[in-house]
Computed example of a mutant assay.
Amino acid sequence: MKLQNFIKELLKTRIRLLALVSKEKAGNSAFRIFCTPLGKARYAITPILRSAENLSLSFNQVPLKGYRWNNGAGKKVLIAHGFRSHTQRFEHLIPLLTAKGYEVLAFDAPAHGLSGGKQINAIDYTTLVAHLTVRYGPFDAYIGHSFGGLAVALAVSELPGNAALKMVLFAPAADTEGLAAGFLKQMEVTDPAVRLHFYNNVERLSGKTLSWFSIKRCLPHLKSAVLWIHDEEDRITPVKEAREIRDLHPSNIRFIFTQGLGHSSIYRDTAVLQQVAEFL
């Protein structure tokens, strides 16, 4: 059994045992696990990262590691990586973006890469994108993958005048409710009371229900030009979410559906990156 699967089995057991004592504690524990990247991925500093200006930031008392390239360029772009990912996995985008005249900014999210912290949720990631926009922006464009794509879409939808911006979304986590339901199924959490306490954490932390954290919900407020790229065989963020939004015919979103790239190769594919360059 792989180590990660072994850890998941232990966590399932923990939730079941807690449920025997307290449904609330079991639900709260399940939510903390949902927000915790298993096996934090660290990385070595590569030549491209070494060429960047190093940035540091304290966010919610958590130290974050950041990078900036091409400081002072005429345009600015922010990159937001996905869950259990980090900035280094997107370094191949830097030459493309600087060639397009962008100053590029990227931070490892809390609990990711070389940043501190143990947990991250959609509330905090969205707030972080908004905070980076105030501190280092304004940005002319945003690039987000998976969980980072959701955070970018939610944050940008709250910006006044966002119609002037561009966004590239690689396989965004469009539906947080679906992700949560998938997690609870994977962790075999079937007790209605435990599930209720799981969801209550979202309202306690944000004052909103989980359905608020969806791209479909924020579409009326999202006027930016969007390039949405999703693979038909994505097993992490199902393509059906992208198709549901496409069928609403949003005039500002251009959809590209690929075949066989999955969830992670999609932002490395040469043909895809050529379309991204043309869009930006």
Rank of each mutant, 00 (worst) to 15 (best):
A19Q: 02
Q4R: 15
S115F: 08
K240P: 02
F59A: 12
L248Y: 00
E278N: 15
D108F: 04
S58H: 15
Y67T: 06
L97I: 02
G39A: 10
P47T: 06
K76I: 03
R195F: 11
V156P: 01
A171T: 08
K166M: 10
E244N: 11
L55F: 08
K185M: 08
T126F: 01
I120R: 07
N252W: 10
W69T: 05
P47N: 05
L219R: 10
S56A: 12
L93T: 05
S214A: 06
L222H: 05
R217N: 08
L114D: 09
A164C: 11
F198E: 14
L159V: 09
E53F: 07
A153C: 14
G82N: 01
H230I: 06
P63Y: 15
L150I: 04
I266K: 01
H81K: 03
A242L: 04
L196I: 06
L159R: 01
G116R: 08
P172C: 01
R195Q: 12
L132A: 08
R16K: 15
S56I: 09
V62K: 07
T190Q: 10
G262L: 05
W212Y: 15
D175H: 00
L179P: 00
C218R: 04
V77W: 02
L97K: 01
W212K: 02
W69V: 03
L105Y: 08
G72W: 02
G178L: 10
F59P: 04
Y43F: 15
L196Y: 07
L10C: 15
G72Y: 00
I236L: 14
L64I: 02
K100G: 07
S29K: 13
G149T: 05
L248A: 00
L55K: 14
E232F: 05
N70P: 04
Y102S: 09
T209S: 12
L93G: 00
R14V: 15
T87G: 08
L17N: 13
S211I: 04
Y199Q: 09
D191N: 13
K185N: 13
P47L: 02
S211D: 02
R246N: 09
A155K: 05
I7E: 10
A26T: 04
L248N: 03
K240R: 15
R243Y: 13
A41C: 09
A173N: 01
N201F: 04
A73P: 04
G149H: 02
S29M: 14
G116A: 09
S206Q: 07
I229A: 09
G74R: 04
G74S: 05
H230E: 01
S56T: 14
K166C: 10
S265Y: 11
L222Y: 07
V194C: 10
Y136D: 07
S85D: 13
W212G: 01
K8D: 06
P250K: 14
A73K: 15
I229K: 05
I245G: 03
R16Y: 15
E91R: 00
Q4N: 15
A52M: 06
A73Q: 14
A111D: 14
V272E: 03
E177D: 12
E24M: 04
Q4G: 13
N28G: 07
